[in-house]
């Protein structure tokens, strides 16, 4: 659900970074936050909990500027990845307009990626949304680990696991170094703003 505030002519788009625990969703947001100018980004909100896991969510508001008289604002959210925070995860998905699925390339997390994507599909259905119809991109994160002895999945394996039926755009990234972070964000922003605009501004002229 995008909120269109006609009194201020503002369109809010909600993009959620989804993925298994410790795949780097918050790191994506932190990188975006630290690299952008103050006038385009809002205050990054994270709820500190013990350890480095997201318990509730993180939020980063961005201001895209004015397009055809509408001020477009994008809000980036992350969900808590850990399986046990299912309820909060579902809650953050409420009103989502676009999704980034962040995949973890570690061999040992292979199943987690697949489970998480299924979990996303199921949660969306509960809100009456179909994953296939939503703006979605997949990010293969932690590509910097490929050159280390840690066993990782290849891009082909990840594609086969996660994108064989969805066939959405994928991005290789390393959230800690910043590689691919903005490419991912740029693509999902375009998809999402178009999606919202098509839905509300162009066709839905009530």
């Amino acid at each position: 659900m995008a909120l269109i505030d006609l009194s201020k002519r503002e369109v809010h788009c909600k993009i959620v970074y989804y993925g298994p625990g410790r795949c780097g969703k918050t790191t994506n947001l932190l990188t975006v936050h630290s690299s952008m100018a103050d006038n385009t980004r809002g205050k990054m909100l994270t709820i500190e909990t013990k350890g480095d896991r997201t318990l509730f969510f993180d939020l980063l508001p961005l201001n895209l500027g004015t397009i055809q008289g509408f001020n477009i604002r994008i809000q980036l959210y992350t969900v808590p990845g850990q399986v046990m925070y299912a309820a909060t995860r579902k809650l953050v998905l409420k009103g989502v307009d676009g999704l980034v699925f962040v995949a973890d390339p570690l061999q040992v997390r292979r199943e987690r990626n697949i489970e998480s994507l299924e979990d996303l599909r199921k949660n969306l259905l509960d809100y009456g949304l179909k994953l296939e119809e939503m703006p979605l991109v997949i990010q293969f994160n932690k590509r910097d680990l490929v050159d280390t002895p840690i066993p990782t999945l290849t891009v082909e394996e990840l594609e086969a696991d996660l994108n064989s039926t969805l066939k959405v755009k994928t991005f290789e990234a390393s959230a800690v170094t910043g590689m691919g972070v903005f490419e991912t964000l740029r693509e999902i922003s375009k998809l999402t703003v178009r999606y919202v605009a098509n839905k509300h501004l162009l066709h839905d002229r009530k």
Binding site: G24, T26, T27, L30, T31, S34, S35, M36, T40, D52, L62, L64, G65, I67, I72, S174, A175, V176, T177, G178, M179, V181, F182, E183, L185, R186, S189, K190, V193
Partner: peptide, 26 residues
């Protein structure tokens, strides 16, 4: 608008370390 918003910070395909998020972002 989206390109303008994000391009100054990362060129496609270019590895550009983010100033503060590097390393120990979490």
């Amino acid at each position: 608008a989206i390109d303008n918003l994000f391009i100054p910070f990362a060129q496609p395909g270019e590895k550009k370390p983010a100033p503060t998020a590097a390393g120990t972002a979490p």
